[in-house]
Design a protein around this nucleic acid. Sequence first.
DNA 1: GATGAATGAGGATTCATTCAT
DNA 2: CATGAATGAATCCTCATTCAT
Lengths: 218, 218, 218, 218
Amino acid sequence: MSDREDILVGDFPFVPKQERAQQKRNALLESGHMLFFSKGYEHTTAKEIAAHAGVATGTFYRYFSDKRQLLMSLLEDKLDKLLPPEPSWLSCDPEALLASLLEAHNDRLKEVGLRRVLPELLPKDPELAEVLSVARRKIHGRILSGLKQVSECGLTWKDLDMDTVTWSIMVLAENGPDKEKQSGKQADYHELAKVMCRMVFPPDILKKLRTEEKSPAE
Amino acid sequence: MSDREDILVGDFPFVPKQERAQQKRNALLESGHMLFFSKGYEHTTAKEIAAHAGVATGTFYRYFSDKRQLLMSLLEDKLDKLLPPEPSWLSCDPEALLASLLEAHNDRLKEVGLRRVLPELLPKDPELAEVLSVARRKIHGRILSGLKQVSECGLTWKDLDMDTVTWSIMVLAENGPDKEKQSGKQADYHELAKVMCRMVFPPDILKKLRTEEKSPAE
Amino acid sequence: MSDREDILVGDFPFVPKQERAQQKRNALLESGHMLFFSKGYEHTTAKEIAAHAGVATGTFYRYFSDKRQLLMSLLEDKLDKLLPPEPSWLSCDPEALLASLLEAHNDRLKEVGLRRVLPELLPKDPELAEVLSVARRKIHGRILSGLKQVSECGLTWKDLDMDTVTWSIMVLAENGPDKEKQSGKQADYHELAKVMCRMVFPPDILKKLRTEEKSPAE
Amino acid sequence: MSDREDILVGDFPFVPKQERAQQKRNALLESGHMLFFSKGYEHTTAKEIAAHAGVATGTFYRYFSDKRQLLMSLLEDKLDKLLPPEPSWLSCDPEALLASLLEAHNDRLKEVGLRRVLPELLPKDPELAEVLSVARRKIHGRILSGLKQVSECGLTWKDLDMDTVTWSIMVLAENGPDKEKQSGKQADYHELAKVMCRMVFPPDILKKLRTEEKSPAE
DNA sequence: GATGAATGAGGATTCATTCAT
DNA sequence: CATGAATGAATCCTCATTCAT
């Protein structure tokens, strides 16, 4: 890939094997993702994935031991990207924070893509279930840790269990945007953020937080 | 079927054909339900359902044209039972009301059983999606109508959109109890009810409601 | 069946079992015939035959040991009816005779109905093949015997083998009328009769025969 | 593929994929042909065909979408080979000509092999019927065209319809040789040729034709 | 005798996975 | 390493036949 190499070898297969391989692997992952999402896991054949990725059927099995493993690789990829950033409610407008939390949902569209296939597999695949469970616990933990910070400052409802609140936020965020077609009635982002904030902050405190948040900027 | 006959023949095999047939049909529905729930739709074969119901493979096809049709029958059965009763927040302790709403979830265990298979099929089956969508709209409408009553009395938060609140309640109720295994962290009923109430009522009004509710009993 | 019985029992199930049974048996045969003809043997189910005959599935098996046996019964019925009458070429206009031979084909429509299913079964069923073979030999024999009469009078071509001629007539008659759709070009009855006569009689003899034939009537 | 290569590599497994595939496809066609012929279409399973061709069940479906398609391919193959050569009655002994026409029957054994399954399928499969009809029309046309030549020279019977004669020849040729088992009485080639000639030529003309035909050779 | 529900073997077809080239 | 043909187990579904009522 260095200049010299280019000069020496010209255009000859200069893409290192590794790189080519990675390309193929990724193409397969992409194809798998898209096809699993659009047709479901069982209805997607290895042949299709390979064809869609532009490789031969057999090649699929050079990169993945089987269909399931491709799915697992997909999960590893995606689950990491799902982890929301450690939220710090105090440093910004809480509603704005939730905006980002819900915006993270855009990337979560992909996860939902995976959620599409999970119900199909979870009961048959305890390992998969475990992987997923771990991921959700991680997310839960991160949200909870943020809530605890504000909670310790006495800024949250005293009578609500932060654990339950955390769980509620998570569930609402997960089911929010794209479930619209199922419910017929879609939740709008802004209103949803307000409802979530209400679960966390008493109205007066929230008002103060939103005001203060502007001050530091001054 | 007359009284006398009953006395004379007791329970002797006189069950009418129709009844026998219904029994079998139900056995198949039951088996389908359980197997779809525990193994997923795709992983359940007609043969298995039949075997589990104690009949031969061919018998399955006497009662259902195929797996999908069994699922649809299951849905028709269950969806009706899912409709929560029109809630009247004023006539009782709101938290108690939510208790019942969440308790209705026990029956909903079955629905959740179905929900288990729905994500697997919804994208592939627009008809199914429509059926489900109608059902959810019905539920949403019923909850919302209850909220509007209290809202018109000025008892709810003025700054929250009741539609969004309705949707949140529905989602939380749906995902509540049995998702525990996926989230690792389970929501406890009582706390969940409190959170839900907070989305609807300002704390002082809720207190009043709960107190008043006792008065009539006095 | 006696008068007295009629008087005694009035209108009560007075159709003797035997008669009722015969009716059903015939209904089944009819239905079998029609369905085998229109859908083929393999594609016709016992259930269909029964339904079409207005009886229950099980009843089918009271009258016939199985589907095949119904077919055999059908054959016995039909094959007899196929036997053409002993032809006597001298007693009438040969072409008129062939008219009747070919007209007998109208009734043979039914046989052709059977021919429809035969190719399907012959290779699997040597017994059936034998039955059919016997029938064809019978027909062949009868035609041949007629030809021999005129042949012995020296009225036929001397250089043709009557056996072959017989066979040709039979084949042409069998494949004649209704095969039209397959050949696209249909044979017309009258012309076909002329061709057949040419295989048997020299033109001058035929002319004489047709003239003489009128004389006796005078 | 150069000469040298051939010499060097000999017959080493260099058979191109295509060739191997063709081999298999042909094996399947062969097996299908033989089995359809010996057991009938309905009684032959895809599995059997595959087994007989020495491949696995699934392989069958790589080459043919289903049983029916294999049959259609068979037809395409065979029907072309069935077309008899344009006959020219004047250039040779008519009976010799018919010899060849009937000898073409050897290849027709195969077609008859197909005819074996056709009656089974024709009524159920209009497309198949059409294909066959076209083929028969072609054959009919070719025979007729030959007859017209001699007819225009005034060499044929004046009172017979050449169309009907054509049709008769075709039918006799088609049903000739292998129907023996059904009729019990088989037509012998030579005699059959004589009968056919009689349908076309008056005896004296035929004699002349056969004599003339020798002169040119002198 | 009649009924029709139940049976289960059997055929068509698909697809994950392997392996010779 | 890539290829894609081959495999054959597994599924869906049908239907001839039986048998309890």
